[in-house]
């Protein structure tokens, strides 16, 4: 009995190099490459603009086809592509096309109404005049509003630049 378990374990961990086994390894490698390149891309977070929701140095998977058939809604965390999908910005959608937004003393005002944002923990007195989101665009901002408004990279971006959404 012990011998049979040992043999089974040996077969599992040290299998014989047959064509069938090599083919299986190649298929697994190809599937994994396609999955992680086109569906669920691993990403490392650099920067503190999404604190405290996402920490600097953190790791996340980006679900690339998330917005292939649907547009992002307000409150969604999305990735915004730079020129390629290797470097992306992680931001939260706060307004969609046609909405008017502004910041008054750090409070987000959407279509004239203050918005409750439970995910924002650090807040400074951001002042930004009203602006309307253009058609085919969304307005994205990071959760870390403790940074100076000039230092924080945010604004409206075309939907074509939305690369996907983090898995968690």
């Amino acid at each position: 009995m012990a011998d049979s378990t040992r043999a089974r374990l040996e077969r599992f961990f040290l299998p014989r190099l047959t064509w069938r086994y090599a083919l299986r390894v190649a298929a697994v490698a190809a599937t994994a490459t396609l999955f992680f390149a086109f569906i669920c891309r691993p990403m490392w977070i650099e920067g503190a603009s999404m604190e405290p929701t996402y920490h600097d140095g953190g790791f996340v998977f980006c679900l690339l086809p998330r917005y292939r058939f649907a547009d992002p809604a307000t409150g969604d965390v999305v990735t915004v592509r730079l020129a390629s999908s290797r470097v992306m910005l992680l931001k939260r959608v706060v307004a969609v096309a046609g909405d008017t937004i502004e910041f008054r003393n750090g409070v987000l005002i959407r279509n004239g109404q203050p918005v409750s944002e439970p995910y924002v923990r650090y807040r400074s007195a951001w002042q930004l005049g009203p602006r309307t989101v253009k058609p085919g665009h969304v307005y994205v901002v990071g959760d870390n509003r403790g940074m100076a408004v000039e230092a924080h990279v945010f604004g409206q971006t075309p939907l074509s630049r939305i690369g996907g959404a983090p898995l968690w």
């Binding site: 915004v80 592509r81 020129a83 910005l89 930004l128 945010f154 604004g155 409206q156 971006t157 630049r161």
Partner: peptide, 13 residues
């Protein structure tokens, strides 16, 4: 040869 480099605005405040 390179003639110009311009940063492309991805996010427009």
């Amino acid at each position: 040869h390179f003639r110009a480099f311009a940063e492309e605005p991805v996010l427009e405040k």
